[in-house]
Each structure stands twice: as C-alpha cells, then as structure tokens.
Design a protein around this nucleic acid. Structure first.
Lengths: 106, 106
DNA sequence: AATATATGCAACTTTTCGGTTTCGCAAATT
DNA sequence: AATTTGCGAAACCGAAAAGTTGCATATATT
C-alpha cells in the first residue's frame, strides 16, 4: 500500500470528494449522493484519504463528518515549488524576447 | 486509459523522471540509470508522460531526448488554486487569533 | 557489410485499484 | 423492545497498472 498524497489525488472521484469537503464537513452518505457510486465505494475512498492524512473525522452520534486537512494539501504545493521556479524563469525569458522585439520595432 | 496529469504524477518513478528532465533533456537510457528498473519500464513511463503531454521529445540521430513540458505542470497548480485560498484564509484567521492574544497580554 | 547501440512495441505476469454485495454493529426512531 | 439508519469491514470481481522478457527497426561504429 503506497498511500501517499499523489496517489490519493490520482482518482477523479477522490479529487471531487476533496473539493466538496474543503468547503464543509460532510458525512459519507451526503457525499455519496454526489456521485454515481455506492456509499461503500465512497467510504473506501475516504479510508484512503484518511490513511494519507488528507482528511479528518469528527464523530457526531452515529454520523461521521469528514473534512479536509488543508495542511496536507500543501505537500503537493511544496512539490510543485521546484517547477514553479522553472516556469517563472521561462516566463521571464519570454519577457526578454518580447522586450527585444519591441525595441527592434522602434 | 485515463491518462491525465494527476494519474501521471501518482507514480513515484514518474515523479522522479519529471524532476530529472525538468533540469535537462535526457535519453531513456540515461534516465534508466537512475532507477532500479529496466530501460523498457522507463520507456513505458515516458510514453504515459508523453500521452498526457507532460513531456516532449527531440530526436537526435538514434537518440531521443525527453524534456518537461512545464506549461502542463501548471494544470496541477491551477487545481491547487481553490485550496490555496482556503489555507490562506485559515492562516489569516490564525493571524487574528495571535493578534488578539497579543492585545490581551497588554 | 557486419556488428553494436538506442529505442519502441507487443505479449505476458503479478499486483493494485475501484467497484459491488453482504454482513455486523452502534446509534436513533418508533 | 423492535426497527430503521449510518457506518465500516470483508469477500469477491473485472479492469488497469507496472514490471519483465523478447522481439523489430533504425542509426552508428568497425
């Protein structure tokens, strides 16, 4: 079982779940209504999300409210950081090219 | 075949490949030296990365240099955007709490 | 021309994934 | 007390993933 953040967000249903519970805590049943799958399938997704700590549970009687562990999402952002540097540099280079073109036009 | 960016970065070997070719274009053979898998396996990963347009090829005689399509990486960044808003808000709320604590100390 | 090298592709195998169905349990409702 | 409801866990299934081995092909090298 790999179970890291990147594997967790690979599945589109899980990404949708993440987007939903980012806004407000939700129960498995409430979540399942948004998809064309059984509640059990959603439950399985929630387990995966819980295992990689992307999600936290809050027990309320027999209901369980799931909500996003936003901090964990930053891990993805952190990984992206190395590439952000690259695409910003590229952008600056493009900027230079455009600036030179302008100069030549004059 | 799903083949989207999120599925592409789910595999740790692929993430490593992405990180390598982000710095400089590399051939499959050169890449394979960095992993404990066969060249063919790396080739397969490269095909997946190519299919979702995360990677571009440059033919040079019998060698093929692979490099990162940085633009495509922005798709992940774009998806993260919605959560960035949330964690920044949370941060601001924490900021307020800290500010209040300071006030009380006075 | 013969051989070596770089690569992709196809076939095959094992493991993982995402789903369903069935079940058991605890909390609510009647 | 009996029934309904919300949930997770386990068993099972088909499809996809990730790897290996064995080719075929095109370009270099000798």
């Amino acid at each position: 079982m790999r179970r890291d953040v990147f594997q967790a967000i690979a599945d589109p249903t899980r990404r949708a779940i993440i987007a939903l519970i980012a806004l407000q805590a939700m129960t498995p049943n409430a979540l399942a209504e948004n998809f064309h799958t059984s509640r059990q399938a959603v439950s399985k997704h929630l387990r995966i999300l819980t295992e990689c700590e992307l999600v936290k549970q809050e027990y309320q009687g027999r209901e369980i409210y799931y909500s996003l562990e936003v901090e964990k999402m930053k891990e993805i952002d952190k990984w992206l950081e190395q590439f952000r540097k690259i695409w910003e540099t590229r952008f600056n280079q493009l900027d230079k090219v455009l600036a030179n073109l302008k100069k030549q036009k004059k």
